[in-house]
């Protein structure tokens, strides 16, 4: 899985920014990127993560009660 990425897609940019803030606090290697068109028709951004950090990120989102629409592999 090394070198592969996934993305979290959110309902709002505010939620994506909250996720970014919480993940950065835990030093996860994440980045906000524009949502790939094939994944969603929403405008805005999604949170890209390294696949090996997926479980940690999901835990952070759950604990911070951050709502998200989907998590998918890139």
């Amino acid at each position: 899985m090394k070198g592969s990425y996934g993305v979290v897609i959110f309902y709002s940019t505010s939620a994506a920014l909250r996720a970014e803030s919480l993940a950065k606090r835990e030093n996860l290697k994440i980045k906000l990127i524009p949502v790939p068109r094939h994944l969603s028709s929403d405008c805005g951004v999604c949170l890209r993560f390294e696949s090996e950090e997926r479980a940690t990120l999901q835990k952070i989102l759950q604990e911070g009660k951050v709502e998200y629409k989907d998590i998918c592999n890139l």
């Binding site: 709002s12 940019t13 505010s14 906000l32 524009p34 949502v35 405008c43 805005g44 951004v45």
Partner: peptide
């Protein structure tokens, strides 16, 4: 503009 585009300045 925030929350409208995915580019660096919007972020």
């Amino acid at each position: 503009s925030p929350g409208r585009s995915g580019h660096r300045l919007s972020l």
